[in-house]
């Protein structure tokens, strides 16, 4: 009996070992592997191939749809990404929670090309943790053939004339934020009364909304499936290329101004290679390629000079200082986040 028992045990042990060897085998390779975690459709893939060829580093590229997705998979998911591209408020949250490595700027010589306006921003006042990648605004894109009212402010999204022709973003900070701003409050409100009012407004709007979407918004607007949509400016640029009937408006209330920057999470085991990658992204030619590919606005001075005149003069991508004077930047609201979560669930569950 004893013998049988011990041989059973051996089998179990062997099986478990075999499993762990198989699992561990996935990570075993001589080349360094860099895990890059980025927004969907946010980089020219050939840039990654070129980086791999030039430095002999393997890149595993995965994407996410919202800052919250990225945060949760980093915080709880046991992931070990080396480079990610969170936005402003998420960067300050990650700094506060000690989730980011300090970036050694001396390893990123190309940092000198980054325009000074994108340095020393409130979420990273000493430029220790982040290197700007792209920036833009949040506004409204509309189809000129379908909307005959002037599109000026967020309130057009509540116009019953466009019932079932409005696409909202499935992103709680953006959707609640724009409602707060329309009501005359700050996009970063922590005030429960104000948030409650925003919730009522969004509830009211739900019957007019065609769908709460993510990246599909581009296809839907280009294909003329909806009249109005809340989008990020860079997406609007790309949409306008494909459908000239579309126009982007930064709402008169100010809209939202945002910055996506490259960061190195604490879980990274290849900090130097990650810095190499970030530096590579800041090379003029590479920054230009990415900017031209995705349509977002670059903070890179040299790449900007080489951009098409037409794009540079387009205020969708490069609004003037006056235009963004009233725009708000999101702040980290970790302490009120459960209120935001709750409101967003209530709206979507209605």
């Amino acid at each position: 009996m004893k013998k049988i028992l011990s041989s059973k045990l051996i089998w179990v042990v062997v099986a478990v070992l075999a499993f762990s060897i198989i699992l561990a085998g996935c990570g075993q390779e001589n080349r360094v592997t860099l895990k890059v975690y980025n927004w969907g459709e946010y980089m020219d893939k050939s840039v990654i191939d070129d980086f791999e060829k030039e430095y002999g580093i393997r890149v595993i590229y995965t994407t996410y749809a919202t800052n919250e997705d990225m945060y949760v998979s980093m915080k709880h998911g046991g992931s070990n990404y080396d480079v990610a591209f969170p936005s402003d408020y998420m960067i300050s949250r990650m700094i506060n929670e000690d989730m980011l490595h300090k970036i050694d700027i001396s390893n990123i010589p190309n940092y000198k090309y980054i325009d000074d306006t994108f340095k020393n921003l409130p979420f990273d006042p000493d430029n220790e943790y982040s290197v700007p990648y792209m920036w833009g605004t949040l506004g409204i894109v509309y189809n000129k053939t379908m909307v005959d009212d002037p599109v000026e402010g967020w309130d057009i999204l509540w116009n019953e004339k466009y019932s079932k022709q409005i696409l909202m973003l499935d992103s709680q900070r953006d959707s609640i934020g724009l409602t707060l701003q329309m009501l005359g409050y700050s996009m970063n409100s922590r005030n429960i009364d104000e948030l409650e009012k925003a919730k009522e407004k969004l509830m009211e709007q739900k019957s007019l909304v065609l769908a709460y979407v993510g990246d599909e918004v581009k296809d839907k607007m280009v294909g003329g499936e909806a009249a109005l949509a809340v989008v990020w400016s860079g997406d609007a640029v790309a949409m306008k290329w494909e459908n000239p009937d579309l126009e982007y408006v930064l709402p008169k209330e100010g809209g939202n101004l945002w910055f996506d920057s490259a960061v190195i999470p604490k879980t990274s085991q290849h900090k130097e290679e990650a810095e190499l990658f970030i530096n590579y992204l800041c090379e003029t030619e590479i920054a230009l390629r990415n900017t031209e590919y995705i349509g977002y606005s670059t903070p890179h001075t040299e790449a900007m000079k080489m951009l098409d005149e037409e794009l540079l003069s387009d205020s969708t991508a490069y609004p003037s200082d006056e235009e963004i004077a009233d725009s708000e930047v999101f702040e980290d609201l970790s302490d009120t986040l459960d209120v935001y979560n709750r409101i967003w669930t209530e709206i979507k569950a209605k």
């Binding site: 919250e68 997705d69 909304v209 065609l210 709460y212 979407v213 979507k348």
Partner: peptide
């Protein structure tokens, strides 16, 4: 279009978002 939150969506959002 994200308007019909089902129990599966709720679980997904709670875990991922």
């Amino acid at each position: 279009g994200g308007q019909f939150l089902l129990i599966g969506n709720l679980i997904e959002e709670l875990f991922l978002k």
